[in-house]
Design a protein around this nucleic acid. Sequence first.
DNA 1: CATGAATGAGCCTTCATTCAT
DNA 2: CATGAATGAAGGCTCATTCAT
Lengths: 203, 203, 203, 203
Amino acid sequence: MTDPIQQQLITARKNQILDAAARVFATKGFHAATIKDVASDAGIAAGTIYNYFENKTALLFAIFERMRDSRQALTTFAELQPDDVRGFIRAFVATPLMSLHSDYLDLFRVVISEIMVNEELRALYAQQIIGPTLIIAEKWFQTWIAQGLIKPIDTGLMVRTLSSLILGLMVQKLIGDELLQTRWESLPDTLTDLIMDGIRGET
Amino acid sequence: MTDPIQQQLITARKNQILDAAARVFATKGFHAATIKDVASDAGIAAGTIYNYFENKTALLFAIFERMRDSRQALTTFAELQPDDVRGFIRAFVATPLMSLHSDYLDLFRVVISEIMVNEELRALYAQQIIGPTLIIAEKWFQTWIAQGLIKPIDTGLMVRTLSSLILGLMVQKLIGDELLQTRWESLPDTLTDLIMDGIRGET
Amino acid sequence: MTDPIQQQLITARKNQILDAAARVFATKGFHAATIKDVASDAGIAAGTIYNYFENKTALLFAIFERMRDSRQALTTFAELQPDDVRGFIRAFVATPLMSLHSDYLDLFRVVISEIMVNEELRALYAQQIIGPTLIIAEKWFQTWIAQGLIKPIDTGLMVRTLSSLILGLMVQKLIGDELLQTRWESLPDTLTDLIMDGIRGET
Amino acid sequence: MTDPIQQQLITARKNQILDAAARVFATKGFHAATIKDVASDAGIAAGTIYNYFENKTALLFAIFERMRDSRQALTTFAELQPDDVRGFIRAFVATPLMSLHSDYLDLFRVVISEIMVNEELRALYAQQIIGPTLIIAEKWFQTWIAQGLIKPIDTGLMVRTLSSLILGLMVQKLIGDELLQTRWESLPDTLTDLIMDGIRGET
DNA sequence: CATGAATGAGCCTTCATTCAT
DNA sequence: CATGAATGAAGGCTCATTCAT
């Protein structure tokens, strides 16, 4: 049961299956992909998958969790100066944007697609990914306002606007916007400028 | 063949079917919905649907086209003053946001979900909805820059940022963000302020 | 919906399927029989069965109901004289025994087998077949006791003994007892004698 | 090979497995029970079962054989007086009826169910359990008739009637007849009276 | 001999689509 | 053009059985 070597084997096999599932889902989409597709890609028998995952949906959820974990690993703003508004904003924007590797692109597409439609997955996404980020960010904004570093804006709407902006850019990139894809690297700076100062010409 | 009365009947029947399909898809999702579900909701036989639409996917595409048309109808900025930057931005943001009625919410959810996964639908969305909007908006921004009304920003990235912001807010609302849902009405003004002037405190 | 011709067609198709199911179940047993077996035997596609029956188990239940109905049709003792104890007993015994045609033999085997194991079917059998018979019979016995026609026995146990005897004979015949099969016709008389007078030699 | 200690170990392990199988089969039924269920209940691995039994069906057969053996152990009428007709009948009836403990109830249910459907098991039951009993009983009846202790009835039908009565009562008890369950203890006497003297009132 | 992961045949069921009426 | 019964391909999932360790 708790044999560490067994656990490693189990984890390895799970990852093998999830890697295959991620590839297949990304290629064909979740609904079009079959368990046999995943099994073939993983080089195992279809039935074996059910020794490690409850059902097809569980594969999607596990993939989702892996994405969440890999994302949380990135979301560390520890080294930032507390009053460095611009630095924080840039990091806040750049971190998720840069995590959207070309490897993850198609997988993210599938997960987002299912999030829209699957209530349970949607709740997970809201609670485990969006939620914590919003709370952390909102505290920073409140601090800055108290310090007079930024205008006294509605922090709740502000953090949602920021995260929506990021999410929307990702989705639009996924949709195939060429300019976004070629200029993706320059987004953090451009966005930070916009958020800090807006577009209005100085008068 | 091209008997106008026949055409009207055909159009009416198509709309009857699409109305039903929109309701059913919105309720159960595209994949979970069956042709019989749609037929029942429309009060007709399942076979009849195939007299008007090629297959199930065609229903989704037709629904998509209706959404596109209704959206294009809204996107008229004719009455705006050419130099009213703030007015344009506000309209540009408010129009799609306000079109996300509660009626359309779930349907939009389904369509977005499929757009992510269906390449053909995705191309349509990019070309027919996002594309024209971006082109129009970009021209305005270029004009304003020429007039010195706004900073000399990268207009391509700018319009994509704006439309992504809108799209992202819609998606995040769909995901179930409560604050966004209750404060939805105040978004246009808040966003316009942000876009125009940013968050930085005046020094 | 309530079109009588439609109803007839539906009933005919249901019977066609049930006939096939009865044959196949009788031959291979319920669990070993597949839906495709039934469909092939009925000369239709597998999917068609699901237009008429919920699932495989529903087929068994419907078969059970047909047997119940055909059995109830036989269970009429109206023409008997109220004080004809021997006549009643003989009819009570003979009716079910004689209904066990060779056609029904294997089917009855399957149904009994499932009744043992399927709680819902068991409840149906107890309530709809055994129960009513016991109640009717018990009233007759009580009348006869009141009239002094038979000994003051425990009527509850008596009617259960009788119906168990019948059931047991059927089961034992199904098990393949050759003597029972060849002498089946003489059972009613033999049993009636036994029940009336026992085996003890007159002293 | 024929090491006696090895044999004991093998027998013990077989019994361990059969005990578990009996419990699991009785609880879930033969078809619903899985080999893993049995293995879990026995506290061993699924594969181990196949070191002792050919396949799943073999478990059922072995259980059946154990029931047969335990039953034969009971069926000893040695101590009865050869002319004690009533005593013999009572023992003949009481022995199997009383062997239907609540422990065995559900197991018997499963075995009977499979006997109905499995031809091989059915043959075993007929030859090894019913058959010998009938032969023994028939000889007694013939003796009694020769002695004038009972009427000159058809002994073949008679013994089958008796054993069917017992079998039928068991089945009906299994089906859930409440009165039979509460009055089960009084059956031997009641049945013996019935068989000996019938129900007809003395004239 | 014990283990239990791997296997893969096979089943029930769904449902988009067709077509005779 | 409407109907809806019939179709049958396809998929998720189970589980008895095997066999390398």
